[in-house]
Design a protein around this nucleic acid. Structure first.
Length: 424
RNA sequence: GGAGAGGUGGCUGAGUGGUCGAAAGCGGUCGCCUGCUAAGCGAUUGUACGGCGAUAAAGCCGUACCCCGGGUUCGAAUCCCGGCCUCUCCGCCA
């Protein structure tokens, strides 16, 4: 969330940000209204409490002197009653205030293009040569079904549409990609591997910004548990340091994690969701960074490079897109997308979002660091990138490496992991 | 799942319902001393919110916070209820 003090001091900056992020500026007005009301009430109730504290001490003193205190106690009873009423009102206002603030998105960074919709996105560059085919490349669902490495029908049978069953070399390819990506990030990019819980609590989901706004998109367990299936490793991994004060000398912290990810994707259906293009459960290797505010935009560029390295090593053609204000996520200030080309479906597929959240998540999750011993704790900046998401990577890989006979070559870097150079 | 114990400041750890934001120690910071990466001495050292201060800083004042949320009371770290978490024992289990 944003700093309440900042919102109060710079309402017009916030208003502009809301407009360019496609959020309702009425949120700001509501915040300002409640904030003012809150401060007025606070002054009132604090004065009464000061009186109560002083008079209570007085009563204690009088009692020691064996004086009669029944009149004072009767007066204070009324004061306490009044405090109780005002406290209740204040409590209600603060709940509303927090709720409003929690629904205000992060503001775009100055380098984020301002535009209300995706037409403002900027394609920064194309990397890798798209392959020239001397036959018509087929979509991955045909390849995978014919090779019997993915069983879409049986996946649906056991869990519903949007759930897939990997088989044989398909399952092994999935596992190989996960292991290989984790190895690259841990051994060559300096990340520490973590393996977090796949279910997370409400607090964690709020910390990274999925809640309260997007509860409907999440899988949720029984009310008794109030747990959510993680929609991305970003949630459990970023919240590792919730409510902690980190030591400046330990920053930056680089973490990488494999998790399965679960998304309801409510409302999505049709052509864009065929095969592996959009599924309810998928695998992903995630990169998460915690750093100081001064370094976060340098770290952001390095993060992008780390994610890109995976695509480069697989020799897949991709492009880098700088998202505009209207297309970046609720919590992000700046975001690059990596899109892989998939010749079978003839589409650019988003396989990584590489975001800088600045202090937006840290403020919600209360993740701070102490710049120097004895100094006041500050909020860290958090960043993350997919490094990368599996299903669309598999789509692009199968479709790019397909051969005319329907078999699929295994990219060189993966061969030790898959144990073969051809999926046949 | 059952039984018990416990959750206090950056850490360890005291705390009879009023003089407790909280003893003591450790750690941190500043200074002194010391010819040597030690020891000693002194001082200082929580956070949030709000008010005053020029919608700056210092500073001053107030309120709140001893796991979280309720309650009792003129007054709660302290008493009561609910929840969460940790530990020990038992049960169950991959």
């Amino acid at each position: 969330m944003l700093d309440a003090k900042f919102v109060r001091a710079e309402p017009e900056k916030v208003r502009q940000g809301l407009i360019y992020k496609n959020a309702d500026p009425a949120l700001l007005d509501e915040f300002l209204r409640l904030d003012e009301r809150r401060r007025a009430l606070l002054v009132q109730v604090e004065q009464l409490k000061a009186e109560r504290n002083a008079r209570s001490e007085e009563i204690a003193r009088m009692k020691r002197e064996k004086k009669d205190v029944s009149a004072e106690i009767e007066q204070m009873r009324q004061v306490s009653q009044r405090i109780k009423e005002l406290d209740a009102e204040l409590d209600e206002i603060e709940r509303n205030l927090t709720n409003v603030l929690m629904n205000i998105p992060n503001l775009p960074h100055e380098t984020t293009p301002l535009c209300k919709d995706e037409s403002g996105n900027k394609i920064l560059r194309y990397e890798g040569e798209p392959r020239k085919f001397n036959f018509d490349p087929v979509p991955h669902w045909e390849l995978a079904t014919a090779l019997d490495i993915i069983d879409f029908e049986r996946g649906s049978k056991i869990a519903g549409s949007g759930f897939v069953l990997y088989k044989g070399l398909g399952a092994k390819l999935e596992r190989a990609l996960i292991n290989w990506m984790l190895d690259v990030h841990t051994q060559e990019h300096g990340y520490t591997e973590v393996f977090p819980p796949f279910l997370v609590n409400r607090r964690a989901m709020t910390g990274t910004g999925q809640l309260p706004k997007f509860e409907f998109d999440m899988y949720h367990t029984d009310k008794d548990d109030d747990l959510f299936l993680d929609p991305t490793a970003e949630v459990p991994v970023t919240n590792i340091y919730m409510d902690e004060i980190l030591d400046a000398k330990d920053l930056p912290i680089y973490l990488t994690a494999y998790t399965a990810c679960f998304r309801r994707e409510a409302g999505a259906a049709g052509k864009e969701t065929r095969g592996l293009l959009r599924v309810h459960q998928f695998d992903k290797v995630e990169l998460v960074k915690f750093c100081t505010p001064e370094t976060s935009y340098d770290e952001h560029e390095k993060l992008l490079a780390d994610a890109e390295d995976i695509l480069r090593r697989l020799k897949l053609p991709y492009r880098v897109v700088l998202l505009c204000s209207g297309d970046i996520s609720f919590a992000a200030a700046k975001c690059y997308d990596l899109e892989l080309y998939a010749p079978g479906v003839d589409k650019w597929l988003e396989v990584s979002s590489c975001s800088n959240f600045e202090a937006f998540q840290a403020r919600r999750a209360n993740i701070r660091y102490r710049p120097e011993p004895g100094a006041k704790p500050e909020f860290v900046h958090t960043l993350n990138a997919s490094g990368v998401a599996l299903p669309r990577l598999v789509v692009s890989l199968l479709e790019n490496y397909q051969r005319e006979d329907g078999t699929v070559e295994v990219p060189e870097v993966l061969r030790p992991y898959v144990g073969t150079d051809l999926i046949a």
